[in-house]
Structure formats: C-alpha cells, structure tokens
C-alpha cells in the first residue's frame, strides 16, 4: 500500500470506521486502495504489533466505569517480569508496564491500571489481584484518578484532517 494511502488508513483507524455493511470497501474508496488492500493492511498492522487492538472501542466512563486507579507495585527485580506477566493476564487490568524506580520515595517498578464502577470495587479488585498473584506482601499504592484534564489520540507527526 502506498504511503499516503497508509497514512490515511491510520487516520480512519484512529477516528473510527464508518458503520456501514462494507466498511473496508468504504475506506478503500476514500483512500484510493482496494478492499482487499485495506483488510490486508489492518491484518499486517495487528500482526506486527503497531496496532495493539482493533475492534469496538468502548467508553468506560459512559458505561459507568467511572473509577480507576493507577496501582503501582514494588516488586523485587528478579521476579518483576514474572509478576508483570501474571498481573497482565488478570481481569480488570487494562495496562501493565514496567517503569524505573525513583529513589526511596518512589520504590515502585510495576504500573497497572485498574478500573471499576466505584472506588470500593477498584480496591477490592486490587486486593484480589494481590492474592491471586502472590503479591500480598509487596508494597503498593493506589493513585485514584481525580480528574481527567486531557485525553486525546497521540500526535506523532503532522496533523491530518
């Protein structure tokens, strides 16, 4: 697929496909490619990992999942990979990233996002996660989200309409 067409396809994926019976054909017509090309390119983007998820993107806030916390864990370095894999596979965990510690005040090296309908549900979920992953003795903190100032798609280059 030509670079321009590919860039425009990425724009469609970011904004959302049209809700019509043949969405790939509709996009193909707009970007000057074939339906098969569009399908193959989305498959390729997913396989290579450039796209982490392709599907129905739900708005958790609108569905009543109004509470979430960034939960940070202080995991011994030699088991942080294993703990990360276990936590990543658990229900309720939407993101699971290793990040560097920052001194005595910030000893946490594993960051997870946990969602729920209210703070109690988030807290119960964290408790259950710690139990099921063998992390009850591990120091952790819950940083509840108080306010969302900004949430937009990342800008990696020149903006396109």
């Amino acid at each position: 697929m030509e670079l321009i067409a590919r860039e425009r396809l990425l724009g469609w994926l970011r904004r959302g496909l049209p809700l019509v019976d043949r969405p790939y054909r509709a996009v193909a017509e707009d970007i000057g490619a074939t339906e098969d090309d569009v399908i193959a390119e989305i498959a390729r983007l997913t396989e290579t990992g450039a796209v982490s998820r392709f599907g129905v993107i739900v708005d958790h806030q609108a569905l009543g999942y109004t509470s979430n916390a960034m939960v940070v864990w202080d995991i011994p370095d030699d088991v942080v990979d294993a703990a990360g894999e276990r936590l990543a596979g658990c229900r309720g965990v939407s993101l699971c990233y290793q990040r560097p510690r920052r001194g005595a005040e910030w000893p946490y090296n594993l960051f997870t996002m946990i969602h729920g309908r209210d703070p109690d549900e988030v807290a119960r979920c964290v408790e259950a996660l710690a139990e099921s992953c063998g992390l009850t003795g591990v120091r952790r903190e819950l940083l509840f989200t108080v306010r969302r100032f900004k949430q937009t798609a990342p800008c990696y280059g020149a903006r396109r309409a």
Partner: peptide, 18 residues
C-alpha cells in the same frame, strides 16, 4: 518534572471485560 519511561510493556490497552 519526574520522568517514568517505559521499560517493558506486559499488557497494552487490550480492553477489559465489562
């Protein structure tokens, strides 16, 4: 401004069951 760069991603935004 403290920076917390990504070291390793175990789980990307894959959605979660509602």
């Amino acid at each position: 401004v403290q920076e917390f760069p990504l070291v390793r991603a175990h789980r990307l935004d894959l959605g979660f069951p509602l």
